[in-house]
Each structure stands twice: as C-alpha cells, then as structure tokens.
Write a protein that binds this DNA or RNA. Structure first.
Length: 596
RNA sequence: GGGGGCGUAGCUCAAUUGGCUAGAGCAUCGGAUUGUCGAUCCGAAGGUUGCGGGUUCGACCCCCGUCGCCCUCGCCA
C-alpha cells in the first residue's frame, strides 16, 4: 500500500512550514528510541528530515516506529513543528523543524546492509562495487552524481549556444588497427565477422564535417580494452566535438568557452582566458611530463653536460650510452632523513630507474650522499645549475631518456603531493602544443603519437618521409592540475597528405584500402579543413570534485581487472550462443561461470 | 607481462620475536530509557585469520602456490 505520496522532499521543509500537514518519503537513516519519544532521520536525495514519534500520537504508531530499522523505505504523514529552541540542529537545512508523525506506511523493509550507508567511507572498494546501489545511496556519492550532471549540463549549454549539433554516432563499428585495443563483438548475421566497440567517434565526426555538419558535439561512451588505472576505465565518457573551416585557435576558443562555462556554473569560478600555451618540448624538459602539474615549481634541470665529463661513472656512463642526467632541487629538503631518501629511491626504482643520486646543500657547497664522488668544482657547478641553497636537497636520475623522464617527472609529482607544494583550490588549465607527429615504435618504425588523421605542421611536411620523427603535429592537449583532460588536433583534409602519413607508419596500399578506403573516398568529395577535440568527462568531474579516482564519479565502474562486481560480468555463455556466432572456444582456459 | 600494498567478526581495524581462550569500535539481537540527532546505559551473540600446501612442539605471524581488491611501469593513437 502506498497512499502517502510525498508532498515535499526530505530537504525542503523550513520553519515557515510549521503547522502544515505534509507527507515525506524516504529511507530510514537512523532511529533513536528514548522509550517514550522516538526519533527517525528520513533521507532522500535532497536531504534529511527528523521525524518524531510521540506517545500522544498513539501506542500503535509508536510500536510501528519501534519496528523501523536502517534503510527501511518509509512514507510518513505528519505535522511540521518548529523544534524547541534547545533542540535546533545548526548546520542542517531542515534543522529548525521536525515532522511530528501521525501515520506511517512501511513501503519496504530492508535487510541489514553489508556496510553502513553513512557519509563516512566505511567499506572496501570491493564491497562498495558489489553493492553499488547502496554506495550510491550515500550522500557524498549522490553529490558526485549531481555534480557530474551539472558539469555535463553546463557543457551542453555552451555547445548549444555556440551552435553545435548534438548528434550520436555508432557504437558498433569497424575494427581498425592502431591505437587502443578494441573490444570485439561477434556478428550473428555476418557469422565469422566482428564489430569493434568504438574507442572514439573519430572517423564519424570527421565524416560529419565532410557532410557539412560544421559544428558537431556529443557526450559519448568510448570503449578501450586496455589495462585500467585510477583514471582509466574500459568504458568511459567523452565530451567530443569537431568543427569545420577552423584552425587551432577556433577549436581552443570553443573549448575554453565550454570549460569556462562549467567552472562558472558548477564552481562559481571565472577562468582566465585564453588559456596559456606550452610546447611539448618545454613540458618534457622542465617537468618530465606531457601533462605537468604547474601549480608548483621544482623544475627538472638537465646536467648531462656536467655529468659527461665527471669521474662519477653513474653519471658519465649514462651519458656515454646515450642517456641523460637530470636533477631537481627540493627547496628545504635538506631536513629529509636518510630513510626518507631511501623511500624515494625505492619509489624511482619501482618505475624502472636504476637509482637516485642525492646531495644536500650545506656550507656553501654540496655534501652528503654521493658528494665524495665529485670534485669540489663539480659540486659548485651542480649547486649553481640547480640554484640550490644550504638546506636544499638535490636529487638526480641518470638513465635512458625515457626512463629518466618517467622517474624524475614522476618523482616531482610524487614530492609535490608528499610535501604539499600544491596550491589547493587553484585552477590553471593550459594547452600543450607542438607534439611530435610520430614516435619510434617497437621496431623503430614510426607510429602516430596522437592518431593517423592528425595534420602535420605545414612547415614540417617536407620531412614526412625523410625524417618523420622531426615532424610536429597540429595537435593540442588540454591539461589541468596534472591531469590530461583531453586532446585534439587539426585533421588532415587532403587525400594526398593522408596517404603519405599512412605510408609513413607502414600501412600497405591494400591495408589502407581495406581499413580506411571509405575515409579516403570521402576526402575525394570535398572535405573542408576541420579539427576538433575530445575531453574526458570522468576526469573532468573527478578534478572538479578534488577526487583522485574516476571510479567515484562513474555510477557503475569496473574493477582494475575490468569486471563488474555487481553483475559479475563478464561471464561465460551457453554453447548455443557460441554456435549461432560460429565461435569455438580454444580448449584450455574456457570462460568459467563465476559463482554468484 | 613486471614492481608494490592490502586481505583477521556483518563493517573498519588490533593482536610484542612464532607462544595463554584471536581483541576493540561500529553494526546486529535482547533489555532499559520522554528531546535525541555518531543518543545513552546494561547484556548477548558473532571467527575454517581469503583459499591450498609447507616449515615448526606450536603459525594470524615464516616459506611456496593460488584467488580477490587497490596503486604503479609497460600499455592506453
């Protein structure tokens, strides 16, 4: 029976409502039984209201109330009363009133939940994911979902105002090589053939441009069958957009408007526009990262020149074998103990570096750690180069270029957090530009760093075949607080250039025909110059909420092994289903149906 | 595929160097309680220490394997 439909939500009632008879619906958050009088906190998405049961309202009602338990679903009819002055609960919107119950309906009982549905996190990830609907019932998670909605709404609002059309694109698409591993979907009607789940709407949004849909956007799901991280899920959401007759500045301006609108509407923050720009080379040199957190300094300094001539073989050999030596100066880090530094060493070894060389600023020069391996002239030079003062700590990594970047760049981020160097509440979005078009692949063959439709810079076109690694791309990443929010580029719109790029990465003519033929055909029919970008919705929400994992902003996320603990997916299928698809499982490891 | 962390009551955690009946808080159940809001007070129940094997007089603790969750390198155009 459900007759007491709510007239108000549990966050709506105020002192001005005193005297009126209302109905509330919600979940029992807590029951406090004082023998005579009994209190129940009733919760819904909008708030929490205290319901009071009094003996004067009848023994039957009080007995009913005594039977209530946490998470029962309840409908209450009662009279709104101003609380006695000493019982007013400050800091709660409904704290000045309470609902004096006259009648209740227990809409549903609830088992004792596997964890308490409270604001404080009191359960493991595993349990939260298994009972996600209970986790989502917690107020902080509801706030996350509400913020997620508001961010998406503000983005859409800006896009609509700027004349972008919200159009969807297929999820079931052709399997194409390169980039992220695709999830495959077998086709029953075309037995033996497979769809791929779209890793992005890339090709379709470009073809929209050929079609004359000169401003497209979408909030879409993307699928990538790669290993997970705190900020990576196998299915995730993107703000995706593409525009025609534009260059980099037009796309960036459109994005800045949308991102600016989100900050304004959701946080009340006005971002300074246009966003600053940084070259990829500078990001790598100064920060050891293509998505640096620029809220604190501690820049990386290359000391390879000094290291090369040093008698300290850790340094000189690294350079001799083609590597680099870089260092950073931790201001005031001289107070760190040997144990602290050992922990840092363990940390860099964990990301593949051989070790950490450290020195401390003292007595106008450098001492401690590896000081005995250097001449006093070298120590002075290092001190000067890193602008170190007494009381500072210098850390160096000597290694192959890539590993040095990962280790020292990572160490910088690690220290930034550990030493609390980051200004909280500051938002400094900026663009990273001038990415290399290609990077060296496994066998030295170039592969696209962004994607194969990215336009090379016009002035670098001549190097496409001669020296591909030198070619810079018309690509740009939006970086905020050390997180890559998204990336995009101006695309190739001419077939001849597209063909050359595909050839550089080693696609045979027949492959090109098979994989991208329709794309090249489309370019024969009048493709306008165009470009676009995609931003990670989940990362965006995570950042604005100050969280460090996107799992808390995705309603139903997967575990690090890509499973849904609630559904227990993926799971095996029955032979008939495989038969229809003409699929046979290879013998040894058949998919096992997990116990539920 | 590699490195690391964690796994003990329903939940969150503790348990000295390998040594007594594996404890606490919360939750649960029973009782008391007329102004609480993390109510309080009294009492009770609750355990194959993830699982399997090994070492040992003796294992929550050590070793090997395995499963699960998390962080990370590779990977993710």
């Amino acid at each position: 029976m459900f007759t007491l439909k709510r007239t108000h939500t549990c966050g709506a009632l105020r002192a001005a409502d005193a005297g009126s008879t209302v109905n509330l619906n919600g979940w029992v958050e807590a029951r406090r039984d004082h023998g005579g009088v009994l209190f129940v906190d009733l919760r819904d998405r909008y708030g929490k209201t205290q319901v009071v049961f009094r003996p004067e309202s009848g023994a039957e009602l009080l007995a009913q109330a005594q039977g209530l338990r946490a998470e029962f679903v309840l409908a209450v009819q009662g009279v709104v009363k101003a609380r006695p002055a000493e019982a007013v609960k400050k800091g709660q919107l409904t704290g000045e009133i309470e609902l004096e119950a006259r009648k209740i309906e227990i809409l549903n009982e609830a088992k004792v939940p596997p964890f308490e549905v409270t604001d404080d996190l009191n359960a493991s990830d595993e349990l939260r994911l298994k009972y996600r609907y209970l986790d989502l019932r917690r107020r902080p998670m509801q706030q996350n979902m509400i913020t997620r909605h508001r961010i998406i709404a503000a983005f859409r609002e800006s896009m609509d105002r700027q004349g972008f059309l919200d159009l969807d694109t297929p999820v079931l698409i052709k399997n194409t090589p390169g980039g992220a591993r695709n999830f495959l979907v077998p086709s029953r009607l075309q037995a033996g053939n497979f769809f791929a789940l779209a890793e992005s709407p890339q090709i379709f949004k470009q073809l929209f441009q050929v079609a004359g849909i000169d401003r497209y956007f979408q909030v879409c799901k993307c699928f990538r069958d790669e290993d997970l991280r705190a900020d990576r899920q196998p299915e995730f959401s993107q703000f995706d957009l593409e525009m025609s007759f534009v260059d980099e500045s037009d796309v960036q301006a459109a994005v800045e408007d949308a991102v600016g609108n989100v900050f304004k509407k959701v946080l009340g923050v006005e971002l300074k526009r246009p966003f600053p720009k940084m070259s990829y080379a500078e990001a790598m040199d100064k920060y050891g990262s293509d998505k640096p957190d620029i809220r604190f300094g501690m820049h990386l300094v290359d000391v390879s020149d000094l290291a090369k001539a040093s008698a300290f073989r850790v340094f000189s050999e690294a350079v001799a074998t083609g590597g680099v030596v870089k260092g950073l100066c931790v201001v005031g880090g001289g107070t760190m103990s040997r144990k602290d530094i050992d922990e840092l060493t363990t940390w860099v070894k964990g990301v593949g570096a051989k070790g950490l060389v450290w020195l401390k600023g003292e007595g106008g020069t450098l001492g401690g750690g590896s000081a005995k391996n250097f001449t006093s002239a070298e120590l002075s030079a290092l001190r000067a180069k890193l602008a170190a003062k007494d009381g500072d700590l210098l850390l160096f990594v000597a290694d192959e270029k890539g590993r040095c970047k990962v280790a020292l760049g990572g160490l910088r981020t690690h220290l930034g957090a550990k030493l609390k160097l980051i200004k909280e509440g500051s938002w400094e979005p900026f663009w990273v530009e001038e990415f290399p078009m290609f990077e060296a692949g496994p066998e030295g063959r170039p592969q696209a760093k962004h994607h194969v439709f990215t336009s090379p810079k016009a002035e670098d076109l001549d190097f496409l075949e001669k020296d591909p690694l030198r070619v810079r791309a018309r690509a740009y990443d939006l970086v905020l607080n050390g997180v890559e929010l998204g990336g995009g580029s101006i695309r190739i719109h001419r077939k001849d250039v597209q063909r050359r790029v595909l050839a550089v990465i080693g696609l045979e003519e027949s492959d090109i025909r098979d994989k991208f033929g329709f794309m090249l055909d489309a370019f024969d029919y009048g493709a306008p110059p165009h470009g676009g970008i995609a931003l990670g919705v989940d990362r965006f929400v995570m950042l604005l909420l100050g969280l460090d994992t996107i799992r808390d902003v995705i309603p139903y996320p997967k575990t690090q092994k890509g499973q849904c603990l609630m559904q227990n997916a993926p799971s095996g299928v029955i032979p008939k289903q495989l038969d229809e698809l003409h699929i046979a499982l290879k013998p040894p490891p058949p998919a096992e149906e997990k116990k539920t």
